[in-house]
């Protein structure tokens, strides 16, 4: 039952070292070949930008994080809810599934400008965009998780009760948790991308807005700094999901072929 944060740190330690080496090499190459700052800025310049208080990074980063988390959270509730509807009865499943699939295959990004027209130029369309990209992986992984419940486990429960709710809460949901978390990990990384895309379309703040603004000024360091922060946000969100998984699903099998 390893719920502490230390295994996480130990696991990513080597990657951090590799990353630091990568940054150093980057710095050296940019200086050695005298690559212009507006093409590829050196890491030192990007770092300076990140540390520049006039850029208002905390506000910008919080905006994007807020949109990502809200959309992601709504997608969890609605996604798992949809999955429950799908397993609840054959009838629901035949009605609901086609809609879920259609929602995934329509080019969602193409509709983002429309969302702003429908919902106004505020947070709502941006959160909605995040929701749209997060929703499908959660539904699919939850339904797959439900189906992975051992059939005899279902028999066991049915030998005591015919209540579907008991079946769901005592067997299906716990059995599905490892699979649900797999879906959440996919979704949470998409969430940040969703927020970014929505901010590209319309916004007055957020990291997507900063990147868009920097483009018109050919300000590569700002764009790189914003991208770096996006990576950090994405990583932190992903790690929180992983940490949560360790706490909630301690019985999960981790398969590793070799040491």
């Amino acid at each position: 039952m390893n719920g502490s944060i230390f295994p996480t740190i130990r696991r990513y330690g080597p990657s951090v070292v590799v990353f630091v080496i990568f940054v150093i090499v980057w710095q050296i190459l940019v200086e050695a070949f005298k690559i212009p700052v507006y093409l590829v800025p050196p890491p030192s310049t990007i770092l300076n930008k990140i540390l520049d208080p006039s850029m208002n990074w905390p506000t910008q980063a919080m905006t994007t994080t807020y949109e990502s988390l809200m959309g992601f959270g709504i997608a969890i509730v609605v996604g798992i809810g949809t999955a429950i509807l799908i397993v609840w009865s054959k009838g629901f499943s035949t009605i609901v599934y086609p809609f879920v699939i259609t929602m995934q295959i329509v080019p969602k990004i193409a509709f983002v400008p429309l969302l702003f027209i429908w919902f106004g130029f505020n947070y709502t369309p941006r959160i909605f965009t995040v929701f749209l990209v997060c929703y499908f992986p959660i539904v699919v992984s939850t339904v797959a998780g439900f189906s992975s419940t051992e059939p005899s486990m279902i028999d066991l429960i049915r030998s005591f009760t015919s209540s579907k709710l008991d079946l769901l809460t005592k067997a299906l949901l716990p059995s599905a948790l490892p699979s649900i978390f797999a879906g959440l990990k996919v979704s949470v990384t998409l969430a940040v991308i969703g927020a970014l895309v929505a901010e590209f379309v319309s916004s007055t703040q957020g990291l997507g807005f900063v990147i868009l603004a920097s483009q018109s000024e050919l300000n590569a360091p700002v764009a790189f700094a914003a991208a770096a922060l996006l990576i950090v946000i994405g990583f932190l969100l992903y790690l929180s999901i992983e940490l949560l998984e360790r706490l909630i699903v301690p019985w999960k099998n981790v398969v590793v072929l070799g040491k």
Binding site: E150, S152, M153, L156, K170, L177, W251
Partner: peptide
């Protein structure tokens, strides 16, 4: 046939 315990 199998114990079918809930791992959680």
């Amino acid at each position: 046939q199998s114990p079918l315990l809930m791992p959680w």
